[in-house]
Design a protein around this nucleic acid. Sequence first.
DNA 1: CCGAAGTGGATATGCCATATCCGCTTATGT
DNA 2: ACATAAGCGGATATGGCATATCCACTTCGG
Lengths: 198, 198
Amino acid sequence: MSQERPALRRDAEHNRRRTLEAAREVFAARGLQATLNDVAHHAGLGVGTVYRRFPNKEALAEVVYAGRLEDIHAAARAALEGPDAYQALKAVLEHVMEQAAADRGLRELIRRGAGDSEPIARARQGIVESCGRLIARAREQGAIRDDITVADLAPIVTMIDSVLDLPSAGPVQAWRRYLALILDGLRTGPERPARRPS
Amino acid sequence: MSQERPALRRDAEHNRRRTLEAAREVFAARGLQATLNDVAHHAGLGVGTVYRRFPNKEALAEVVYAGRLEDIHAAARAALEGPDAYQALKAVLEHVMEQAAADRGLRELIRRGAGDSEPIARARQGIVESCGRLIARAREQGAIRDDITVADLAPIVTMIDSVLDLPSAGPVQAWRRYLALILDGLRTGPERPARRPS
DNA sequence: CCGAAGTGGATATGCCATATCCGCTTATGT
DNA sequence: ACATAAGCGGATATGGCATATCCACTTCGG
């Protein structure tokens, strides 16, 4: 799975790792709009060094986040094993949002609909598909309303995500409150019969 | 309330109106990041003409949106008259989101927490206060949960707002669906038990 | 008909991200 | 130890973009 790169000199390999680590930190803190110069400086390296290994920001971001998304995908797939689809869906969403809350770059990646490179796009698609199955199962199990579908996934994630960059967001993780609110709204209940989208 | 300006020549006054109208359209379509050059061109005027009347984009945006926000504020105050606070709150939120859905610039203004000029800031504060009262009343009337406060207003608006710039947003106004979902989640219900005790 | 007011838009200015280039340093294996 | 390829740093070229100005020309209004 790790495509073989042409064997770097030992110091170069070391700097490559430093670059990646710095990129993780910088992207997490300042988002994807941070420059490769920022990353290089934060890694204690020259700009040229970074550009030698990664042709541009996109390539660097891809290496940083592809694995990350794959992990999420794996978690989503694993969640499909459990018997209770609703609880599984809830757990996956909480897991995703926890990651997003700690990583501005990841948030931007999740948010932007298109334009991401192939491995990222693939991982995203996989996640969506797994969640789609969870939603379908939860619906069949009567845990959530009839009219909830995969199409609701993106909006829901986007909504919770938007709470994250609210200035007032204090030390408490406000997003948990709103995720709970929304998940609650999805549930079927005596008083909330499945209703059609207006 | 309208501060007296030093009486413009008739053509100048006309161009001023053209500029404002163009600004409304351009800001609505492309957001506040549109340039004054854009606005001037769209108004069929030279850049200099626009800059003579409005020192910068902020000043222009203020004139365009101050009244807009005042209207919303008025609507919110009017809503306080009705007997059913929950319905009133719902109506106000729907009204605000309808405006926002049609105006990208307004959305950006709503979203950005600070840094807006005095009249804008005042109007916003007024809106928040009125809505705060509606929320308090709705709570007292037992229509919404005990733990909902004014502090939930901004997150809720932000969440719905975020749905608006979702690329997949088709011709249907998806935001109505999610606003309903959230409002529904605020309600007190004769319990909303999970199908299974967890 | 004259002077003040207004106009247009090319352009100066400044900012910022991207990416390159090349003289110097370091690793590596023989 | 030495030769040589690989790697390094970071000043700087490049280009894009928004802001704002300036001034020769036009138009308004008394």
